[in-house]
Design a binder for these strands. Sequence first.
DNA 1: TTGTGTAAAC
Length: 778
Amino acid sequence: MPNRSHSFYSYLSLISRSTTPLHLLQILSHSIISGHHPNLLLSTHLISHLSSSHHHSLSLLLFSSIPNPDLFLFNTLLRSTPSPSLSLSLFSSLPHLHLHPNPFTFSFAISSSSSFPSPFPGRSLHARSILSGFSSDPFIGSALTNFYLNFADSLSAHKVFDRIPQPDTVSWNSLLSGLIKNNAFSQSLIVFNRMFSSGTSFDPTTFAVILPAIAESQDLNLGLEVHCLAVKSGMASRSHVVTGLISMYSKCGEVSMARFLFNDIERPDLVARNAMISGYSVNQDVGLSVSLFRDLMAIGGKPSSSTLVGMIPVFSPFGHGFLSRCIHGFVIKCGFDSNSPVLTAIMTVYSRLNDLDSAQKVFYEMPEKSLASWNAMISAYAQNGLTEMAISLFQDMQALNVRPNPVTVTSTLSACAQLGALSIGKWVHRIITEEDLELNVFVSTALIDMYAKCGNIKEARKVFDSTKDKNVVSWNAMISGYGLHGDGHQALKLYSEMLTARIAPTSVTLLSVLYACSHGGLVEEGEAVFESMASEHEVNPGPEHYACMVDLLGRAGKLKQALEFIETVAVDAGAGVWAALLGACMKHKETSVAQIASNKLFELEPENSGYYVLMSNIYSANREFPQAAMVRETAKSRNLAKTPGCTLIEIGEKQHVFTSGDRCHPQTEAICAKLEELTAKMIEAGYRVETDAALYDVEEEEKEHMVKVHSEKLAIAFGLINTEPGTEIRIIKNLRVCLDCHNATKFISKVTERLIVVRDATRFHHFRDGLCSCGDYW
DNA sequence: TTGTGTAAAC
């Protein structure tokens, strides 16, 4: 303790060395006793110290005891006030204190209003700062940039930022980190480029902020450049920067480079270790990930939630038993049983193991659902084919006002695409626009795919054309979209544009192009593409490509050539090629090649009921009924169930599903009446029942030569009743549309003057005025 | 500064 002879300055120096609030208060009382009443300077120091040791109530107490605080003292208090509502009420007390806010006052108040639940106080501070004449202050500008991006308002953020005359490093960093918080990774890389060209110098924060964005976009070249910049500016060994580099290299697949940097760290902290552990994990190196984890335990380190989140994904290949026994148990033992990120990682693993029940259980029992956990559940549903569940969960989010991010809408759109739910897909598109979510390459590709799969190929193309950062996946989605719609020529045209743009085709690209040729009947073009695969594009054909070639040749009626292709080129290509050949035999009503193909298939995949159905139908089509019956008997004796056909139609935003011979729908009678009315008109127009169609139905006995009304006809009739004349009708069928339904739909489109769009298991059919876009080639 | 969740063909 100082004695009476101590000067005012010795109190100051004591304050700066004090660590506990008690100690600070002792000094304060001592100074008062010894006649040194706490003046402004002394109080300011005290407040600053109390705040940095998180004793906010004490600093507030001290502040209120000071009769005439100055602005500097006020700002010091404001800067360290943890609660946004408290700092807002402090701000409004300025007039009582006869103080005028300066730029620091505004920027501190704005910073804390970023964590206020509503954006209004921050906006009003923005307005008041302009009225006070600070419209282009760099400090306020940075704080506002940050504030607006915290409320996902990137338009306002950019406006504010552009008003800063000479943005400094901190301003740029605020913009960058805000964009990244909003998942606007590609945009952040553009801003980073602008920052670089402006000549603004980087600080360690700049590197720490931009490296995750580079990692996210997997742009290794940019990562290397930034690494060089960091080395040149002498910041490459700062701990935050190294961690960012380790993570960036791992995510770009350069895990050995990451390890090299890691080994160079003298005493790696927990964060660096976590980055390295997850680096091995994303690169599927179980051994090294676990061994680093062991190192951590060996030095007595305590794993953080990030350690577990980083390590958990590597365990999914071990299978369910291991996970539930060890990992889930370990998480609970470590006290992370209510930690949202850790539980989200567990959910993802369950989902990858197709154990949706467990994933769902973790999700619904989570005490606090984060955005990531909502996303994990939606994508778990979407990836496991539970499309309605995925969509309904997204609708729940909307109802609960949980704001989606690009990841959320990407998964939801994927569900819409699978389901063919166009109206919901459009609704999601509107949400993306209204909420100003970043249209990153994932979102735009998902939109392209959704529009294409839901039948709106023009809208798909519109999105495709307006997408700036297309990658090969976007091109693939668009090309396969054309294939789906039977437009082989557009698919080939786009493919050649892609080659001109010097984008290397992947095996998926080539498969999509081949399918488009096959669906469009472009045999020679398809053969040329197949030839070019290995020779020009260094892609070796896989079983799918071979099957597609068989499909291409077989559909065109070249069954012998297709068989030869299998026996000479596509040897050991598996069941796919034979299935394609069998399908082609059905189209051309050919039994001898079909026998060879089906025998192969019964041998390769005896459990697949589809082949028995197909073979039996081929016999029936050729009036070889005893053989047909025999095949069906075999299938029956093996207890093989066939997939029931069903058709979906959307009226408004509601989906209606019909099965074959369905009489469950409330409007059943009206539907039957409509069908009778239609049949009469169709027969008048020349329609005759295709008898072969009856033979598609293996479960129907021959006693009935009548076709049980297939689900697509029910759905079309239902659509006709419930929509205005002239509206187009869109239906989605899970199996391939049968010959009779295809023919009937042509007539329906004619007699009702409607455009009818049918999506079946493999492609789209646009029926208009008695004709189908597939040219009866399907 | 690390960690969760995302699109294309079959």
